[in-house]
């Protein structure tokens, strides 16, 4: 019922969270560099015209709104973390996840997403060029190791780049660190 308040990217994020955390018992991290800019811009334009803004849009304009909707609809009562990190979201996700894991949580589910960028903002910020979302379930248990080394040159990985790397299309992912996956 609450999904109606989410855009397609928010719905995709909730779908991924539901698949990777089917029992709703893991800490969740949702990172997005820009969030739902389409609706935020609509509100700013309404204010500029002197019109009242939509209470629904206003209620959804916080960065943790998607996690909020997800936690209500799935009765998820574990820790939730919403992140925006000026392009460093991927590294931030892993730092937050490691914190939860070291505290004793057996796994953490993280989603990195970007909504569509309104035309008014194009050219003013880095953006993958399309709406996209990717999820990961992270654990300290045995499995494919995730290794960090210093990058040659820091970069701002988008969800599309994370997907390509996880698919094996790229040997490493550069963020603030260079991330590589160990053998399966």
């Amino acid at each position: 019922m609450l999904r109606r308040r989410l855009d397609a990217t928010g719905r995709a994020t909730c779908d991924i969270l539901g698949v990777l955390d089917p029992n709703a018992d893991l800490p969740l991290v949702h990172a997005s560099r820009h969030g739902d800019t389409t609706h935020t811009l609509e509100m700013l334009e309404a204010l500029e015209r002197g019109e009242p803004i939509s209470p629904t849009r206003f209620s959804m304009s916080v960065h943790n709104a998607v996690l909020g909707v997800h936690s209500i609809s799935r009765t998820h009562h574990r820790p939730l973390q919403a992140l925006g990190a000026c392009g460093d979201e991927f590294d931030a996700i892993l730092h937050e996840a490691k914190g939860y894991l070291v505290e004793g949580h057996r796994a953490v589910v993280a989603v990195l997403s970007e909504g569509p960028l309104p035309s008014a903002y194009q050219g003013y910020t880095e953006h993958p060029g399309t709406a996209c979302a990717v999820g990961m379930r992270l654990t300290l248990d045995r499995g494919r190791r995730l290794m960090a080394s210093d990058p040659v040159r820091g970069a701002h990985p988008t969800p599309l780049e994370v997907m390509a790397w996880l698919n094996g299309d790229a040997p490493f992912l550069d963020g603030r660190h260079r991330w590589q996956l160990g053998a399966e």
């Binding site: 019922m1 009242p52 939509s54 209470p55 629904t56 209620s59």
Partner: peptide, 16 residues
Amino acid sequence: LGLDSIDALELGLALQ
């Protein structure tokens, strides 16, 4: 219909 308090505010604005 299962509406909540935010829907009530939204509906109030629409009536206005």
